[in-house]
């Protein structure tokens, strides 16, 4: 078990020593969100109706931006090879890396999301729904994104490719998340949506690290 904690500690340490990789996607998230009112106009009715979609899509894109940082650094300086050849199981290390990546990207965005919901005149139920939805949705995105990151290791123009590979797989999470906020804003209960998001999360916890681990071995095989 301690290899999991050691991996999380190591990765968080690395993230804090090089905050740019983490802060840039968050700033990107902030800017993208504030572009929409400028583009669409400040009218309350319009903004509150598109709030959920805008925030979720912004989170989606920001997660994609920050996902290849998770493995690329280790791949370039050869440490990923050492991890793959270590006695500890690569699966656990991958899981630890995904958790630490989520903590510095999706988790932060989920915490910040009520602030931006206010910018879009979303009522309090909506804000809570966005935060809860993101808390459940962003780990799934990071998990699925890590498969794309592992598959495109070592490719020159890997960044854009990850988006093409992984975005279609994000669609169920996006649909459930936005629908959840919509029903919350109208005061209906959204536990059903939350349970579905949780189910998707559990499914990707089960499968994604397995696929990522195999993809890492495939990408290292060059």
């Amino acid at each position: 078990m301690n290899i999991l904690l050691a991996t999380i500690r190591r990765d968080l340490l690395l993230h804090f020593r090089q905050p740019a990789d983490i802060l840039n996607p968050l700033v990107f998230f902030l800017i993208v969100i504030s572009l929409f009112p400028l583009g669409i106009g400040p009218s309350e009715a319009v903004l509150s109706s598109i709030a959920a979609g805008v925030i979720w899509v912004a989170v989606l894109l920001a997660t994609l931006l920050s996902i290849d940082v998770m493995l690329k650094g280790d791949f370039d300086d050869g440490t990923l090879e050492q991890i793959a050849l270590g006695k500890q199981s690569l699966l656990v290390v991958v899981f630890g890396k995904v958790i630490s990546q989520w903590l510095v990207s999706g988790f932060l965005m989920a915490l910040m999301s009520p602030l931006f919901a206010m910018m879009f005149y979303v009522n309090t139920e909506g804000m809570i729904a966005i935060a809860v939805g993101l808390l459940l949705g962003t780990p799934t995105m990071t998990l699925i994104g890590s498969i794309g990151a592992a598959l495109t290791l070592g490719l020159k123009k890997g960044g854009v490719l990850i988006a093409i590979l992984v975005l279609p797989l994000y669609i169920p999470v996006l649909i459930l998340g936005t629908a959840m906020v919509e029903s919350a804003v109208f005061g209906h209960s959204y536990t059903g949506h939350a349970l579905w998001l949780a189910a998707l999360l559990v499914l990707s916890i089960g499968f994604a690290p397995l696929a990522t681990q195999m993809s890492i071995r495939i990408s290292l095989s060059q």
Binding site: R10, L13, L14, R17, G73, D77, G78, T79, Q82, L85
Partner: peptide
């Protein structure tokens, strides 16, 4: 295994 790259993190 020790490969072409040193396998150490520059930040650590």
């Amino acid at each position: 295994f020790s490969g072409h790259r040193a396998g150490v993190k520059d930040l650590m």
